[in-house]
């Protein structure tokens, strides 16, 4: 199997996830991921894995700018038939899943752009040197950034959760 093909098979899903967490639109994330890999096959760069995520990040940024220009806010999981769960789940399970997803998205939104980027790149499977290269951070700073990003994400999520719990308690 060609090296690029191997990379495609192992990384495509991560690239879609990475893009999805930036554009919040499953179809668009797929489209952009395919664009990324088509460019990869055309350019065949030296360090393909890091290259793929760098291009993905750039495309996502362009997408965000375009979205701002259009003043069109893409919201999480709204009316997207493609978002249907793969199995038939009880309605309350689906609602719960969607609520949790929205909560995590909100929590992620409280992070700085840099922290988000590093966290998402790490989660996409990039190494510290690859993250450093893409973000311009020193390798030593990647650990610091990740430490802060993880803590903030979890703290923000927990805070939101406890707020929600208090809200529910107050209503009941």
């Amino acid at each position: 199997m060609d090296e690029l093909e191997k990379l495609y098979q192992t990384t495509y899903g991560a690239v879609v996830r990475f893009l999805y967490r930036k554009v919040w639109d499953a179809d668009r994330a797929e489209d952009l991921a395919q664009e990324v890999f088509m460019r990869l096959f055309q350019h065949r760069p030296e360090k393909p894995r890091a290259w793929v995520f760098a291009v993905a990040a750039n495309l996502a940024r362009d997408e965000a700018r375009a979205a701002i220009r259009r003043r069109k806010h893409l919201t999480l999981m709204t009316n997207d038939p493609g978002q249907a769960p793969s199995r038939i789940a009880a309605a309350d399970e689906v609602v719960e899943h969607d609520e949790q997803m929205a909560a995590v998205q909100d929590a992620l939104g409280t992070l700085t752009r840099r922290d988000q980027e590093v966290l998402l790149l790490w989660d996409a499977g990039l190494s510290y040197p690859e993250i450093a290269q893409q973000t311009g951070l020193a390798i030593g700073a990647v650990g610091t950034t990740l430490a802060r990003a993880r803590r903030r994400l979890v703290d923000a999520y927990d805070r939101q959760h406890s707020d929600d719990s208090r809200g529910h308690a107050a209503h009941s």
Binding site: F37, G82, L108
Partner: peptide
């Protein structure tokens, strides 16, 4: 963190064939 981020995933779809792309 990993678990929270895992919820932020688009639905699984068929990966387009390498040959096609």
């Amino acid at each position: 963190t990993t678990a929270l981020l895992a919820t932020l995933a688009p639905p699984r779809r068929i990966v387009p064939s390498y040959e096609l792309l």
